[in-house]
């Protein structure tokens, strides 16, 4: 794990977790990225708990220590428990997660591992379970989570481990 940050942070700190990070060095993209982050959580048609399942699956695949440690408060309020989080591992298919959760995780794994190989059976099952709006929201959420977690890893300065911490979605 790389421990030294590869970019600094803005001189003026604002108290906003994203604006005060290295991302604050590019103020031209910040408003749109913060708006997107907000929309992913507050406009989701699948609910914050399922979005958090997707986010954590991505966090574990990318191995982003920050991302793995965070639990968004709105996801917990929507029913996400640590018992459920523990099942978001490579054996999720054999767990007692719901069919909907397992399909969402399978969708995430196609994106994260082999987007060129999308099994027809999985496509059919996703179409039956989710609306077009829900599929679009999961696709956008997953892309956003993946981009931001790889951003955190690429910028360096990642600790070896962090405790689980609940936080609000940065607004």
């Amino acid at each position: 794990m790389h421990n030294q940050p590869r970019a600094g942070t803005p001189e003026r700190q604002t108290g906003h977790v994203i604006r005060d990070s290295s991302l604050g060095l590019v103020p031209e993209t910040l408003p749109a990225l913060i708006e997107l982050q907000g929309d992913v959580w507050h406009r989701t048609s699948v609910g914050p708990a399922l979005m958090e399942v997707l986010r954590l699956r991505n966090a574990r695949t990318v191995n982003c220590v920050f991302c793995k440690s965070v639990r968004y408060d709105i996801a917990r309020a929507d029913g996400l428990t640590e018992a459920k989080v523990a099942k978001i591992d490579d054996n999720f298919a054999a767990s007692d997660l719901s069919t909907r959760e397992k399909l969402a995780l399978s969708f995430a794994d196609v994106y994260l591992r082999h987007p060129e190989r999308f099994e027809p059976g999985l496509i059919e099952a996703l179409r039956k379970e989710f609306t077009a709006e829900e599929l679009a929201h999961m696709a956008i959420g997953l892309t956003t989570f993946n981009a931001l977690s790889r951003c955190a890893v690429s910028l360096g300065g990642m600790p070896e481990s962090l405790p689980v911490m609940e936080m609000a979605v940065p607004g």
């Binding site: 590869r6 290295s22 987007p115 696709a139 892309t143 993946n146 981009a147 910028l155």
Partner: peptide, 20 residues
């Protein structure tokens, strides 16, 4: 560097989505 890293995530992501 930050702009590059931000952009790579979304460019790569959209390529993945285009396949899926």
């Amino acid at each position: 560097l930050v702009a590059l890293i931000e952009a790579l995530g979304f460019i790569d992501g959209r390529l993945r989505l285009a396949r899926m």
